[in-house]
């Protein structure tokens, strides 16, 4: 009995010390990690809409519910970004949004920039953990294999063009990584489908007449 107490004492001390050290380092690195994430998002935004001078995030409140469906609090979630071609937010250049889908072995996040008519300006893969050498090639804009996959091929495409070649579309998929290519393509299409009605330019909206 005495032995058991001694052993658990030692183990407890070891784990408590470890937890304390980890907590300290976590509090030091946490802001830096957040900063890196922010910088990455900003970089991706700039990449997909390089001529935008000002971006503002359009958010919506998402209720966070507990098990009984009671709303605990409301979380703010970024739906998309409005991009303006002047610093005073007068001239609307287009929109940027994040598309997300599960690929072959990971969730693939893509930043997409579109103009006001919904034509894709550019895309950038933000995060993926696909098979190295296959699906992971999606990120390279000029992959070494010499295949025709490139994120550049999305430029100028609209929602109706977004289909990989195996599904009868125009997007050339990565050889050996059709699932990855399809996920990227389809996630952008799905996201566009939900976003386009919300961001339809004012002049296209039916004018109510009385």
């Amino acid at each position: 009995m005495n032995n058991i107490i001694r052993l658990s004492m030692v183990l407890t001390i070891v784990t408590v010390v470890a937890a304390f050290v980890l907590a300290e380092i976590y509090s030091v690195t946490k802001p830096q990690i957040e900063l890196q994430k922010l910088a990455k998002t900003r970089e991706a935004l700039h990449f997909v809409l390089p001529d935008a001078q000002h971006m503002s995030a359009i958010t919506r409140k998402v209720p966070v519910r507990d098990g009984d469906g009671v709303t605990l609090y409301e979380k703010e979630e970024i739906m998309f970004y409005e991009a303006f071609s002047d610093p005073d937010s007068q001239r609307l250049r287009g929109y940027a949004f994040k598309a997300e889908g599960s690929g072959y072995s990971s969730i693939i996040e893509t930043m997409v920039g579109i103009d006001t008519a919904g034509v894709i300006q550019n895309i950038k893969i933000i995060s993926q953990k696909e098979t190295p050498g296959l699906g992971a090639l999606a990120e390279d804009s000029d992959p070494f294999t010499g295949k025709k996959w490139s994120t550049q091929q999305f430029i100028g495409k609209t929602i109706n063009d977004l289909k990989v070649d195996k599904d009868g579309g125009e997007i050339v998929s990565i050889t050996g990584a059709t699932i990855t290519s399809r996920t990227i393509t389809n996630s952008i299409r799905d996201e566009l489908k939900t976003l386009l009605p919300q961001i339809a330019p004012p002049q296209d909206q039916p004018v109510e007449e009385d």
């Binding site: 050290v21 980890l22 380092i25 976590y26 690195t29 830096q32 990690i33 890196q36």
Partner: peptide, 10 residues
């Protein structure tokens, strides 16, 4: 864990 946190931060 330390390596992971430091690496993703810096």
């Amino acid at each position: 864990t330390i390596v992971e946190m430091v690496m993703s931060a810096y």
